[in-house]
Nucleic acid binder design. Structure first.
Lengths: 139, 139
DNA sequence: GCTGGCGTTGACGTCGGCGGCAAGGTCTAC
DNA sequence: GTAGACCTTGCCGCCGACGTCAACGCCAGC
């Protein structure tokens, strides 16, 4: 099949496919007129890429999975390198989630405080302090 | 004080300050030779910006806080517009965290499955399936 | 007067994953 | 033969928050 059909069947665009090829991720055969030619195996590789991308994996992170499939393994994550990517992504996600959660709690606290102060200011309250408190606590 | 000193005292760079000014966020007076001239109030504004930035707020999101301080309010979050930004950021964070958590759990599950299959493959296991499962479930 | 350390503006580079457009080649159908 | 649907390469644009020059001006000290 050609690039347009492959893109449609994988739910992506020809632009993305050419980009993947330029990154050496999804090589393509060429037929007589220079058109790219793909088969069902390429569709498998591409679906692996797309699935990981949908999960927030970067393109480079999908490479071990693709190479694993290309090497004839039954699944993209049948190889140790893929498992390493899983583990690294897991650690990365845990870090990001933890930091975001901390920020979320801090923002929620600041919002609650500011709302209280606003309510206290209407009847006539005391003088508050300056916005969001820096990380260090004391300046 | 001039731009270099302000940058040092706020823990940022002159480049960032000029950028903020170009965005209309932190205007500067000029002295005779064309140098930017700042005072302690500017330092307060800048610290407000930096604190919010450290929490992951975009520059535009800091604008209401800065304008609130410029309007003479005691804190950057003394104004309704700032509270709206808090609330929007809170909702945004909750959405992002929820999605990341879902991805995290999915990756953890895939990792566990793949590790099991790898262990089962060494002694001689059954045939597994393909990598990470797409969102839809059935294709 | 000359060095060095400040400051100025302007323009381009960064990172990722493509989108969009231009200018052309190729094949099919009518 | 010609419209139109596909394909090709290549290059610029985008998003945010600056970093990194380049080329220059200003001022203090020796």
């Amino acid at each position: 099949m050609r690039i347009g059909e492959l893109a449609r069947r994988a739910g992506t665009t020809t632009r993305a496919l050419r980009y993947y090829e330029s990154r050496g991720l999804l090589p393509a055969r060429r037929n007589g007129n220079g058109y790219r030619e793909y088969d069902e195996e390429d569709l498998r590789l591409l679906r692996q890429i797309r699935t990981l991308q949908d999960f927030g994996f970067g393109l480079e992170e999908t490479r071990p999975f693709v190479e694993c499939l290309q090497a004839g393994h039954p699944a993209g994550d049948s190889c140790p390198a893929s498992l390493d990517v899983y583990r690294a992504k897991l650690a990365e996600l845990d870090g990001v989630i933890g930091r975001l959660q901390a920020v979320r709690d801090e923002v929620a606290a600041q919002l609650a405080r500011a709302e209280l102060e606003a309510a206290a200011d209407l009847p006539g309250g005391p003088e508050p302090r300056c916005g969001l408190t820096p990380h260090g606590g004391a300046d």
